[in-house]
Amino acid sequence: MTADTEPDRLAAAALPPLDAAEAGKLRRARIDRIARWALPAVVMIATIAGWQWYVDAYQVPHYILPGPDRVVAALLQDWPTLWPALLVTLQITLGALVIATIGGVGLAVLFAQSKWVEMSFFPYAVILQVTPVIVIAPLIFIYVPSKIVGLLICAWIVAFFPILSNTTLGLNSADHNLRNLFQLYGASRWQTLWHLRLPSALPYFLGGLKIAGGLSLIGAIVAEFVAGTGGLGSGLAFKILEASYRLNIPRMFAAIVLISLTGIVIFASLSILSHLMLRRWHESAIKRDG
């Protein structure tokens, strides 16, 4: 009897075997992890291959549609002009994102202090948001002498709204009972803001920030298109304009690729930032079991 149960007990002590459903779940999770990277990569490779095949097979002139090989060649060859332009665009984008964050959070905190302030000014934030930046940009470049400042303003206008509206929502969605608790313990307005409302708003803010990251790149590019002037310190949008005047289609593609990559990198960085800040406590960052 005792001898009989001994191995069972040992096995149980080591690690009880998984049932079929759990084992399947584990296998699916492993496949999912690979597929998440592999599938988009396969689609990407297939698209590029198809593109190359189409261009070769139908002998499409390169000034209409260059093949991927020419785009890569342009990217390498024009790197000395594209790289500084990328840096300029990146500076505007990140600068605008920083100001949008400060401005958006600052305004949201101001709104949170007083319903009256919120009621008075929120509609204007909406107006600023719904008016396409491309129609405001020319005016801004008339009124603002510095091109850099003009670009920053344009990108800011596009980027700050999601931060403002999300943070405002977040500040107002602090748990009601926790607010009561703060009141009961005699918390000051500042303590409530700092220890309760801002942490409650963090996930909302980070969601807004992720949107704002992409928007500030769009804002920077659109504003550059409007600003249009060349010379020193012009960004990627201007390189695209310039290349289009010269029918240098491969360079246009190369610049577009760079802009897309920049957008992807910004989005990925902000997603990682968001995950790092929320992973200990927020539902969105927690892996579910089953």
């Binding site: 748990d175 009972n177 926790l178 009561n180 608790l181 220890h195 309760l196 942490p199 963090l202 200990r280 406590w281 927020h282």
Partner: peptide, 9 residues
């Protein structure tokens, strides 16, 4: 309170 009402963060 009826709910634990803890700060999740």
């Amino acid at each position: 309170f009826q709910e634990p009402t803890l700060m999740p963060w």
